[in-house]
Amino acid sequence: MDKVVRQVILASQPNKRFVGLDELAQVVLFLCSEAAASITGTALPVDGGWPAR
């Protein structure tokens, strides 16, 4: 299964890895913080560059 993931799914992923839960949690924490108080109505993809492929 790992070989299939590497050769098929991650082959076209720019950074060659999946986004980790810790990375996603950091984005959520930022969006819940005062530092993100002015961010409204936008999409913030956390996809490791998938659309760039």
Results as ranks from 00 to 15, higher is better:
M1Q: 09
M1K: 12
D2Y: 06
K3I: 04
V4I: 14
V4H: 09
V4G: 03
V5Q: 07
V5I: 10
Q7K: 08
V8E: 15
I9G: 03
L10E: 00
A11R: 12
S12A: 08
S12R: 08
Q13A: 04
Q13D: 02
Q13T: 02
Q13E: 04
P14Q: 02
N15S: 05
K16G: 00
K16W: 01
K16A: 03
R17T: 03
F18I: 03
F18R: 01
V19L: 01
D22M: 04
D22A: 12
E23S: 06
E23R: 01
E23P: 03
L24R: 12
L24D: 08
A25F: 08
V28Q: 06
V28T: 14
L29H: 13
L29Q: 12
L29N: 10
L29Y: 07
F30C: 05
F30K: 05
L31I: 12
L31G: 05
L31F: 07
C32S: 15
C32P: 02
E34I: 04
E34W: 05
A35C: 08
A36T: 07
A36C: 09
A37E: 11
A37K: 15
S38M: 15
S38D: 15
I39C: 08
I39P: 01
I39Q: 06
I39A: 13
G41V: 05
G41F: 06
G41E: 10
T42F: 04
A43W: 07
A43H: 08
A43S: 14
A43R: 13
L44W: 09
L44A: 11
P45N: 15
P45V: 09
P45R: 11
V46Q: 11
V46S: 15
V46P: 02
V46C: 14
V46K: 13
V46Y: 10
D47A: 14
D47S: 11
D47N: 14
D47F: 02
G48W: 00
G48Y: 01
G49E: 02
W50T: 00
W50E: 00
W50C: 01
P51I: 06
A52E: 04
